[in-house]
Nucleic acid binder design. Structure first.
Length: 380
DNA sequence: CCAGACGTTGTT
DNA sequence: GTCTGG
DNA sequence: CCAGACGTTGTT
DNA sequence: GTCTGG
């Protein structure tokens, strides 16, 4: 399940997107651990072994155990235990997820958990592949519902009734805003809060991290794993597992503050969440070398055959590259069978031109990053 | 006691 | 089938 | 998570 | 490091 994400915020924007209020009501932003802002590379197609932003309690980097301070670190996806002997390169192939059902007893995760090494994994959203009877896979992008006004000049929002919004407001503050809260959790009122983040609300997933020190010494390697749970009903028809999503500021805080919230309490946060929305995307995302924004653009299932406009869009997204020539323009009879396979399509958002533009809008500038990697040797 | 594994997903 | 690379 | 490789010898 | 199998 959770083996692919998108994380596209510029390193300098991540701290802003992680603004929160401390128990005194004061606004704070986590800071990057030394140099880590330069180790994270935004991408619309993040695979295990990449470094991505995670939040941890600052106690792990010199702060008091009880501190509310948070630190942003660029950790590597795929947990390498501190006791691992050998070359950690390529070790974490099977530790990108931790089953919540066994994490308290299995050595891989028990150790770090008992040391309070809980982290919050940040992303725009994650990808899930639905396997059809025919064996074909349809990828979906899954994320927190975004509020209106995103980016400032977006005039369209998802139709109401899209993602299952089970926003429970725990012990929130006085602010009764149901409108704006793009920051992690229930933000404050924007009107009197010019410092608030107005961009995308990042998905927050519960993770476990560890620190591995090379035998020969040198920089410690920080790695993490994403905890998984059974899928919530809303998305179970796509896939039967999902990441442990932390919905809201209170949950994020409790997962991070290991000095205040003991493990046996914190584990109560690990459970299926309904608070997500999603849309189908192109199989362009399948190959992790494809980093373009096309990975997150909504598609209409059954209409993935390139249309004139989609070709143009594709070409634009690819920017440098000429639109590839299709091998054969065989176009089977249009027998569109769109929509989610029946069960619970109720809270599905249907792609609209407007929605599409909202996804395109953010891809345009950021991609093009590492798509110039020379593939393997070429046969001669 | 020592040696050796230690993780996940999905699919059958 | 299984493992590595992304 | 998916995609793609998966092998050897000898010579430059 | 810690747990299981022998």
């Amino acid at each position: 399940m959770c083996g692919r994400t998108a994380c596209t915020l510029a390193p300098d924007d991540v701290p802003r997107a992680c603004g929160f209020r401390d128990r005194g009501g004061k606004r704070r932003q986590p800071r990057w651990k030394d140099g880590d802002g330069n180790k994270y590379f935004p991408s619309h197609n993040v695979s295990p072994q990449s470094r991505t932003p995670v939040l941890v309690c600052s106690s792990h980097f010199g702060g008091e155990v009880q501190t509310e301070d948070r630190t942003l670190a660029a950790m590597q996806w795929g947990l390498v235990p501190s006791w691992f002997k050998g070359d950690p390169k390529g070790f974490g192939y099977k530790t990108n997820n931790a089953r919540s059902e066994g994490m308290m007893t299995k050595g891989f995760f028990k150790g770090p958990l008992q040391k309070g090494q809980r982290c919050v994994v940040l992303a725009d959203g994650y990808f899930e592949w639905q396997t059809g009877k025919d064996g074909k896979k349809q990828p979906y992008f899954i994320y927190f519902p975004q509020n209106k006004g995103e980016g400032g000049d977006l005039e369209d929002k998802p139709e109401k009734g899209e993602g299952g919004n089970l926003e429970d407001k725990p012990e929130c503050e006085k602010a009764s805003d149901l409108e704006v809260k793009h920051e992690i959790g229930e933000g404050g009122d924007l009107e009197e809060d010019p410092g608030a983040w107005r961009g995308r609300r990042l998905l927050t997933m519960a993770g476990i991290f560890d620190r591995w020190t090379p035998p020969e010494g040198g920089e410690p390697l920080y790695t993490y794993t994403v905890i998984t749970v059974d899928a919530a009903p809303a998305t179970a028809w796509i896939h039967h597992r999902m990441p442990a999503v932390l919905d809201g500021e209170a949950a994020v805080r409790d997962w991070l503050e290991h000095g205040r919230v003991p493990l046996n309490k914190a584990v109560e946060l690990i459970r299926p969440q309904e608070c997500l929305t999603f849309h189908p995307v192109s199989t362009v995302v399948n190959n992790s070398r494809n980093k373009s924004a096309e990975c997150v653009v909504p598609v209409v299932i059954g209409q993935e055959k390139p249309t004139a406009s989609s070709k143009m869009m594709s070409a634009w997204l690819q920017k440098g590259k000429p639109a590839k020539q299709d091998k054969a323009e065989k176009t089977p009879p249009p027998n569109p069978k769109p929509g989610p396979p029946t069960p619970k399509p109720g809270l599905h958002l249907s792609p609209s031109a407007g929605l599409m533009s909202s996804w395109l809008k953010r891809g345009a500038k950021e991609e093009e990053r590492d798509d110039k990697n020379p593939s393997k040797k070429r046969k001669t």
